[in-house]
Amino acid sequence: MNRIVEKQDLSENVVRMVLEAPAIARKRRAGQFIILKVHEKGERIPLTIVDSDAEAGTLTIIFQVVGKTTTALAAMKAGDALSDVQGPLGNPTEIENFGHVVCIGGGVGVGVVYPLAAALKKAGNRVTSIIGARTKTLLILEEEMKKVSDRLIVATDDGSYGFHGFVSAVLQNLIDEKEKIDRVYAIGPVPMMRVLCNVTKPYGIRTIVSLNSIMVDATGMCGACRVSVGGKTKFTCVDGPEFDGHEVDFALLTNRLRMYADQEKQSLETYKCKVNGK
């Protein structure tokens, strides 16, 4: 059992939680994730470790409320306990001083790119960050990102805050300004990552994406999370979660993420009926 220490709503459907998990907190490195299970009958879902405090023995996660599990998780409060937290899983991000790195996060993906930006900054990189959201009220972690970036650019799709447009347009502007970029980290919804990879590819800028495949065991046992990278099948859980974005088959990823769309809807509806019926 892992207790929830803190819970905070970051926007209308994005929640930040601090969980008790001392052993994982001691070991975890940037880029790794956990699997959590809310209760005995729950499913196992992967969530990136946004931050950790080895001394306090805690982990921070940020999630968007989309399906049944995240809805049930968001309904929990500080002091409640999750039945299972497993980790740290996946390969840590390769952290070096690459020079100038651009860290891009879209939507809840900002939570995933934040620990990378922090670790890259610490390793001596010049960090330019671009974070985006549909609208101002959905933007998360602006202050935190500012602290770990030499420069932070905010974009909103509707222009309610910062640059009016997609993060990909901001990146294109940076490239057009002849900024030398050594590496790009692009994390967010699949369409966003796909577009960002298309932006950097002609310039040969190495672009790392972090994939959010469906997983079950997350230790290389089941292959639910298989993706095609450079024409080869890889498991996101043990070979990733980060891959060279120019090699990823995003169409396959999109299809596989939709595999349980109907059941996910059914599960959420059943849950809502049950909760409202009480």
Binding site: E43, V216, G223, Q263
Partner: peptide, 26 residues
């Protein structure tokens, strides 16, 4: 599916009792 995934979903995660259990299976 790999057999590992199919059976893990059904046996460990009890997907055969979905939606009582949260894990889906095709």
């Amino acid at each position: 599916y790999s057999a590992n995934e199919y059976l893990t979903r059904s046996n460990l995660m009890k997907a055969y009792r979905f939606p009582e259990y949260d894990t889906p299976i095709v």
